[in-house]
Design a protein around this nucleic acid. Structure first.
Lengths: 258, 258
DNA sequence: ATTAACAAACAACAATTTGTTAATTGAAAG
DNA sequence: CTTTCAATTAACAAATTGTTGTTTGTTAAT
């Protein structure tokens, strides 16, 4: 094999190599504040952050201590950053099968005082009740959910402020332009539950109007009725359940209404 | 400063570090085949690839020789992968100010036989005439533009087949869902030129129909008429020129028509 | 000078979708 | 029995789209 010969001559150290490769995760959840029985919930999009502890696991002073940060950690040689994110998320929250998506790389020289460390950033969507089982580990003194407004007011470690801005931008456009909203919802949901999810990131009147949205959901090719299935979660009158099918759509901005 | 104390205890070598960090670029262009004078052009989306030479710059056997590959190279400590992409693209094609966007990271263990090498992938949009000035460098025996159909038939280096599939997916959805189309067009363009760009990645009837698209372009909030400016590039009758303004829009799939 | 050719622009009308307001339904709660 | 309320249905005007056909401005051939 000709690659073998070439490898003999290849010196892996002719370039300076990074000092580390980390995987960070912006964990989003939507908290549902029930406004009463037989009412649709009020939903708020929140981001989970951990407070970096004063001492690390070996009892040494911790870097960027007492600031809020995205959960994450070093990627191992045997895994991808995506797999590392899944592993770390399970260590942190004991949740498997979360929706996870890469959204950016952060590699600005000097972004981490420990050296040339590249961060591969992902966002995750975790249902609220799965986060209640979360627990702080050695490196994380505290875990807390922040609304997008609260985020503006706190001190963040490293360049996590930049990463978080990008994460919010990405989850916002994905919620509106893809079917990820399904990761926030039960398999079968009502039109008003879907609507509440979307309203956490938009105030588009065509989505905010009950009549328009209830009429529209019936015609969306990527959503279908669950025939004969209803629930009374959101109203006294039993209401139709819907589910996403596996269709993915891309709609041009050039054919939309303005 | 408390970070200083923490750094004394931080051992940069406690984790295995990557053997390299590269920046790869999927360079897209649209070739305009003029179908005649005073006619709108036929456009085709193409990807520029380089053929890896048998020997490298030091006259040693080259890795993945004679396969087609994305241009790219190692990121230096003093720069981001994005800056490296810009630098390499200028070295390769002598073009500055190209539209450039990150779209993925490739870090599967074993993807590169030289070691643990992480690729940060970008796509670039370069006007066709800027690519004519391109020249092969030491590492690149040959440079060629491939249509999306031709790409399926050739041997690609490393995991560049996967990277290219993702690049095409990304530029397709960006062309339709953002205003990047402007990077393929002159500052002022006709409705049929914009239409031709979009038709390289979609066959949506609302875009393909001349009447519908010509009527629609007047109502798009992110495009405006260049008052009183016309051209005869595409027809004998002088036709109105348009330009993108700086508005960015996000249109939900939930309010589109199906 | 007249005419053919042709993309762009415009017109017109039916079909469809949306915005809006109002009425109805079904079950819970008092 | 009545009230309450989210969901659903109805109805109609307003706006947008699909479609077909006509006009316009210019080039090029006769």
């Amino acid at each position: 094999m000709t690659n073998k010969d070439a490898l003999k001559h290849y010196d892996v150290n002719q370039y300076r190599t990074p000092d580390g490769y980390t995987s960070d995760i912006a964990v989003f959840t939507i908290t549902s504040e029930k406004t009463g029985v037989y009412k649709p919930p009020e939903m708020t999009l929140k981001l989970m952050l951990i407070k970096r502890s004063v001492k690390d696991a070996e009892d040494n002073p911790n870097i960027e201590a007492e600031k809020w940060a995205l959960p994450g950690g070093f990627v191992e040689t045997s895994e991808t950053a995506f797999e590392a994110a899944r592993r770390e998320l399970e260590e942190e929250t004991s949740v498997k099968d979360v929706h996870l998506k890469h959204f950016g790389v952060y590699d600005r020289p000097g972004r981490d005082p420990r050296g040339w460390i590249i961060s591969n950033a992902h966002y995750a969507i975790v249902p609220e009740h799965d986060l209640t089982a979360r627990k702080a580990n050695d490196d994380a003194a505290e875990v807390k959910l922040f609304s997008l407004d609260e985020l503006k007011t706190i001190a963040l470690a490293f360049d996590h402020d930049t990463i978080i801005i990008d994460a919010i931008k990405m989850i916002t456009s994905d919620l509106l332009q893809t079917t990820v909203a399904k990761a926030f919802l039960p398999k079968a949901f009502t039109y008003s539950e879907l609507q509440a999810v979307l309203l956490t990131v938009t105030n588009d009147p065509a989505i905010a109007s009950h009549q328009s949205f209830a009429r529209k959901i019936k015609t969306l090719p990527f959503i279908q009725e669950v025939k004969g299935q209803t629930t009374s979660r959101t109203s006294k009158k039993p209401t139709q359940l819907y589910q996403f099918n596996d269709m993915e759509v891309v709609k041009p901005i050039y054919t939309a209404r303005y």
